[in-house]
């Protein structure tokens, strides 16, 4: 028994030594990207294609949330931080020290439980629902059913975008909150009277996407800003992050990636956009 303890302890020591050595060896060609879970699948996919073409570089992509991404790139713990929001929209981040790289556009659509029988709302109605003024679907032409608002977690990129575009300066009603597109999709699909919002790519046949003021939620309408609820996906770096990082970011913004992978993963290409938006939600052509 004692021998096995000794063996295990020495294995442990060995492991720690291995860790120390391993670090020094691989730092030069390693690139770590952390942040938004929504953007993760895209970056991961691009990274794996990129490393196939450039054998000498290994890219690690992790989630953790936009807040984590921005914090970590600011402190320099990682090279690239993924974020759903502008750095200037996040408290505690010095946006001047970071460089923004917009790599995709994502459209957000309000969704309801299909049994409600509502397919279109006016922007005003939508605002009233999320601020708690309208509490029954009857008032907007649906069934006599209580409205159950499901919001996203405070500070999440999707929620910031949604509230900026729909609520303006008003505060949302206190309500249930969920923290991912997937869970929202499941809960709205199974809860009578539920309303929430998801990214375009999460709409399926169990939930009913809503048109707003008769405008349909689709890619063309987003590119012209006819559909107002959309945001950029950002990859932030510090200033002068080095040529390897620049090359990777160029690659992800290239037409090759934007026209294929970005679309396959349900985002909208930055090259298709006919308008642009700044952190204060001002849209310009």
């Amino acid at each position: 028994m004692k021998r096995s303890i000794t063996i295990a302890l020495s294995l442990l020591t060995l492991l720690i030594i291995v860790t120390g050595c391993g670090n020094k060896q691989s730092q030069s060609k390693k690139m770590t990207i952390v942040g938004s879970t929504a953007l993760q699948p895209l970056v991961e996919q691009v990274a794996s294609e990129y490393s196939e073409k450039n054998q000498d570089i290994s890219i690690t992509v992790q989630g953790g949330g936009s807040g984590t991404g921005l914090s970590q790139v600011q402190t320099g713990a990682v090279l690239i931080g993924n974020s759903d929001v502008f750095a200037s929209q996040a408290d505690g981040i010095d946006a001047d020290k970071l460089v923004d790289h917009e790599v995709a556009v994502v459209g957000i659509v309000p969704v309801v439980n299909p049994k409600i029988g509502v397919k279109n709302l006016t922007m005003q109605q939508l605002q009233d629902i999320f601020t708690g003024k309208i509490t029954n679907w009857k008032s907007v032409g649906g069934k006599n059913e209580e409205i159950i608002v499901i919001n996203r977690a405070q500070g999440s990129g999707t929620r910031i975008t949604f509230e900026q575009s729909v609520l303006g300066k008003k505060t949302a009603v206190k309500s249930q909150e969920q923290d991912s597109n997937g869970t929202v999709q499941q809960i709205v699909g199974s809860t009578p009277g539920a309303i929430s919002y998801v990214s375009f790519s999460y709409v399926n046949n169990k939930i009913q996407p809503l048109s707003i003021d008769g405008v349909k939620p689709n890619v063309t309408n987003v590119t012209t800003n006819a559909w107002k609820i959309w945001s950029y996906e950002h990859m932030y770096t510090r200033k002068n992050p080095g040529t390897e990082v620049d090359k990777f970011l160029k690659y992800i913004q290239s037409h090759e990636v934007q026209s294929k992978l970005v679309k396959q993963l349900g985002y909208i290409s930055i090259h298709d956009m006919k308008v642009s938006k700044d952190a204060n939600n001002h849209v310009s052509k």
């Binding site: 391993g22 690690t60 997937g182």
Partner: peptide, 28 residues
């Protein structure tokens, strides 16, 4: 010691449980 090696203890690793979580939370 090789980053590609399956034995490297310093590579990121998604486990089954994390995979289930990820697929349900943000899977497309």
């Amino acid at each position: 010691f090789d980053p590609n090696s399956f034995l490297n203890p310093l590579r990121p690793a998604e486990t089954l449980a994390v995979h289930i979580w990820k697929v349900n939370a943000e899977g497309i």
